[in-house]
Amino acid sequence: MNRAELADFLRRGRARLEPSDVGLAPGARRRTPGLRREEVASLAGMSVDYYTRLEQSRGPRPSRQMLAALARALRLTDDERDHLFHLTGEEPPRRDTSSAHVRPGLLLVLDRLYDSPAQVVTDCGEVLAQNALAKALVGDASARPPRERNLTRRFFLDPTARALFPPEDLPRHAHDHVAALRAVAAARPDDPVPAALAAELRAASEEFARLWDEHEVSLRRPATKRFLHPVVGLLELDCGVLLSHEAHHHLVIHTARPGTASHEKLQLLRVVGLQDMTPHPTPTHP
């Protein structure tokens, strides 16, 4: 691991970004160009101390998950992301499988969707990036350990994930999760990620195993979803899905029809933000 080169690369990447590039308000006048360390740390879901040590050439070797988070926070291109991995002695992710790296252009679109909950999710259900309103609606995925950021795993193994939806909607969500994962596993037989996730959930969840054996197949498509929020209550939202086929990413956008009660609640949620959300566990770092 080349700590000095890594530190220099991180500092330069931070200096070239403005708050507006990552969806942040400019705030007070800055003495130096670029983002602050605490802003990069927040975007990457790590502590400020941990990030500061990386920039000072004294940090531990980051995990692959942490490198992917740094690449997203600094809006790195694919080549820059690969360079970041090489500096730490890691092999960059293969580009023919589902990647944890979100292209800067897709992140720019996400940042501009300030009035609609939106998040970037892999076709295997890994939440890679969220805007502020998505965090307010379904919780901050970056505040959870990496294994708990997968929507399908959480739905079947974490009872709190089901509290987001009305009980009568749970069977449909269960079928959709399983059918989508089966479709991905069949489409990419050489990718170990969907196969490993399916094997894990078949062993851990009787419900998943039963649905898997039904052999239903379907991709994630636009739909209407209902959410139970602890502060604003029930919201009925239209779910749109934009695809990035090259990286197997989905940009999932939830919108409310103007004039409806759900639209008013969504506007209230923008004001409430994360203030009244149930606290999540403190993130762990390598």
Results as ranks from 00 to 15, higher is better:
47 S>F: 14
169 D>I: 07
49 D>N: 10
57 S>E: 11
76 L>E: 01
99 S>K: 03
93 P>N: 00
103 R>D: 15
146 P>Q: 14
149 R>G: 04
156 F>R: 12
139 G>F: 07
159 P>W: 13
172 R>Q: 14
132 A>F: 11
67 L>S: 06
171 P>Y: 05
60 P>I: 09
64 R>C: 11
129 A>M: 08
170 L>R: 15
127 V>M: 03
171 P>K: 05
167 P>F: 02
122 T>Q: 08
91 E>V: 09
64 R>E: 15
49 D>C: 13
138 V>M: 13
109 V>G: 11
135 K>R: 14
155 F>P: 12
118 A>E: 14
114 Y>D: 15
105 G>Q: 06
54 L>P: 09
79 D>G: 02
100 A>R: 12
97 T>H: 15
77 T>D: 09
156 F>M: 01
127 V>P: 03
105 G>K: 11
48 V>H: 04
128 L>V: 02
140 D>S: 15
66 M>D: 02
131 N>Y: 01
164 L>G: 02
63 S>R: 00
163 A>D: 14
80 E>D: 12
156 F>C: 14
133 L>V: 06
87 L>I: 06
119 Q>T: 07
98 S>V: 10
74 L>K: 10
121 V>L: 04
171 P>S: 05
148 E>V: 00
126 E>N: 14
86 H>S: 08
136 A>F: 15
154 R>H: 04
163 A>R: 15
148 E>I: 00
126 E>K: 03
116 S>N: 13
116 S>Q: 12
109 V>K: 11
47 S>W: 01
90 E>P: 03
75 R>E: 12
143 A>M: 09
94 R>L: 14
150 N>R: 12
52 T>W: 07
110 L>Y: 06
94 R>F: 02
61 R>G: 01
119 Q>W: 14
136 A>N: 09
144 R>H: 10
52 T>Q: 04
109 V>A: 14
88 T>F: 02
81 R>M: 07
150 N>V: 08
154 R>Y: 04
168 E>I: 05
107 L>S: 04
127 V>G: 09
60 P>Q: 00
60 P>K: 00
92 P>Y: 08
99 S>R: 12
50 Y>F: 12
92 P>F: 07
149 R>C: 10
156 F>I: 12
145 P>Y: 02
88 T>D: 00
52 T>Y: 03
154 R>S: 15
123 D>A: 03
113 L>E: 03
101 H>S: 01
117 P>K: 04
125 G>K: 11
165 F>K: 01
60 P>W: 01
154 R>I: 15
88 T>C: 09
121 V>K: 04
104 P>W: 06
